[in-house]
Design a protein around this nucleic acid. Structure first.
Lengths: 341, 341
DNA sequence: CCGCCCTACGAGAGCGCTCCCAGACCTCAG
DNA sequence: CTGAGGTCTGGGAGCGCTCTCGTAGGGCGG
């Protein structure tokens, strides 16, 4: 097909020869050097340096059956949301933690049904040790795809019910965070607290709605307005809420982007934040929450940390000869008080 | 270390046995089946299906020295710009084209100097067949990194001068596109055409500035204002321009994001677009250009196509036993007329 | 009908590595 | 001084695949 990537790289054999030891010993040194006496270790290390030896990954994988790569599955609708800083942060966390574990990130972008087959084959083909996936939508094909590939996996975000797979997930305490946000508005003395909800096909959005209702058990249904996690939808929802209930004095927006949109509408209508209407967001993505005017009071979730956690969970899954899956993790949220509430 | 990913998958040997042929013949069938008679092909295919055979990638790589993976290098500043739809689109194009070539996308995120070593080792270690990188900043370490790893690579965007590496790149005709934009404003009869420029450390921004000057050879320097490709900077630049030269009647913003910011400022100042000020952007990212009010006249570059082109160039590089590097590609731009100019 | 050539298939080596196992060596107690 | 027990090291098999090469077999011209 083509030339080797680099003109014949040195093999372990060559290193061993140069160091005057056997291939087995050289291998031991390369893999940590335990059980090898110091002088030999040094000799091998030196040979490695001199020759610029880099282990052949394929050969190693062939025998160890591990390839040090993890697939990150992103389905089309999510990818479009890549512009959402949320994703960037989560992938960043994943990437960083994978580096720690000496693993590579293989981006698998599932775009259509044809891709679904391809990716399932790929996952099943042992190209990657495990998979990380974001399960955001009810109609998502990812859980099915993963179970088909029979590969260790971890989800980011609680998958919708209905999947009987025991795939662990990492999520933040959406419901608890929402409760905290709403309680905070209550504590400020707000009486007509509205909710700008996220899309109903995402568990995170549903959980935040539940949290709202936990606190405001018999909230006026007209105070709940639907958004889709975009700033634009937040602006629209806010307008609608103000039309329906002009006496709104508190708003919990299910994410910061929608909160920023709501803020815009409030400003356009000449309402002061937080004086007239107190506003709380969710996520605490710095690029949004800190730059609004006024800065957003919001529920922080440790997005990058969740990404890292996903990797750690997967690693535990991989190093786990017994079959017991580690439990899912719910990370805590914290209310970050800024100016908007 | 751990269990095999899946309990002992079938090998080619097993397929061959079941089909009653030799391993060699089975291999031939799996790899396209040329030189094998139809009945045998069928038998092998059937065995593959029945056993659910999937080739072992590592074993194949070990002997072919190709691993069907391409590294996509993203340096930290770019990654932060992932929220820029530009990147999403380009990666999308790359991903799609890689699928066509049966290659995987390994995301390599270069974050610091420590990472630089790690990634260089990784690239040099033959884990990937080639690399794609985005060279946006003058101070970028990526070109050096790639030349160190001595691996076939293609850049997205013309790298800044000063690198004597013969790494081909794919870029759009930034200068020509800018010329077209400015000429269009001229054709509309605009006399005081301002430029909102992009950051000076990016070749694309510089080229667009050059294009502006190509048409407006002795433009008033006060009509040039610096931005950084964000909407916010566009808004600020527009404000500054209006303060400096209230008679501005045409603006070429070096990207759509800045154009959208400029639009906001113009609206706030009560100026009508395009009646008072005609505005042209660059990029034609739909999520921005089509949703502004009025919709943006802009210079379209085929971002996804450029991503695909990068992959094709790399593939040519890989299948190229002679050492002649394919030439870089400059893709054309087209002016898309909407409402803003 | 015989021999030639071409095509289809199988045998086998080997890619670079890990890891099992046997043997060498050393230490120390008896 | 000897042998048991431990620690290190090397030999060698084998991971699953591709690919070269040799051979068998069939078609066709002479």
């Amino acid at each position: 097909m083509s030339e080797p990537t680099v003109g014949s790289r040195p093999t372990l054999e060559a290193v061993a020869a140069r160091a005057g030891v056997s291939r087995a010993t050289a291998s031991r040194v390369v893999n940590g050097g335990i059980g090898v006496r110091a002088p030999l270790v040094d000799k091998v290390r030196q040979a490695v340096d001199e020759l610029g030896y880099v282990p052949n990954h394929a050969a190693r994988t062939l025998v160890t059956r591990r390839n040090g790569a993890v697939g990150v599955l992103i389905a089309e609708p999510e990818f479009r949301i890549f512009s959402d800083p949320f994703f960037e942060r989560q992938v960043r966390g994943i990437s960083r933690e994978l580096t720690v574990h000496d693993c590579q990130l293989v981006l698998l972008w599932v775009e259509g049904s044809a891709d679904r087959d391809r990716v399932a084959r790929y996952l099943g083909g042992g190209h990657v040790d495990g998979a990380l996936a974001f399960s955001l939508h009810n109609d998502d094909e990812l859980p099915a795809l993963i179970s088909r590939a029979r590969i260790p996996a971890v989800f980011g975000g609680r998958p919708p019910a209905g999947h009987d797979l025991d795939i662990p997930y990492v999520d933040c305490d959406n419901r608890g965070g929402a409760r905290e946000a709403v309680r905070h508005l209550c504590a400020l003395g707000r009486k007509n607290i509205a909710l700008i909800a996220g899309p109903r096909d995402q568990t995170s959005a549903l959980d935040r709605i539940d949290g709202y209702h936990d606190v405001l058990v018999d909230a006026d249904p007209a105070l709940l307005c639907q958004g889709d996690f975009t700033a634009e939808s937040g602006a629209r929802a806010m307008a609608e809420l103000l039309d329906r209930r002009p006496n709104v004095d508190g708003v919990f927006a299910s994410n910061d982007l929608m909160a920023s949109g709501a803020l815009r509408t409030l400003r356009e209508r000449g309402l002061r934040v937080p004086d007239d209407v107190a506003l709380v967001g969710f996520d605490d993505v710095g690029s949004v929450a800190e730059t609004t005017e006024p800065a957003l009071t919001t529920v922080r979730q440790d997005i990058e940390g969740m990404g890292r956690l996903m990797v750690r969970l997967l690693m535990r899954l991989l190093n786990n000869t017994a079959g017991d899956a580690p439990a899912s993790v719910i990370t805590p949220t914290t209310l970050v008080r800024r100016a908007s509430a």
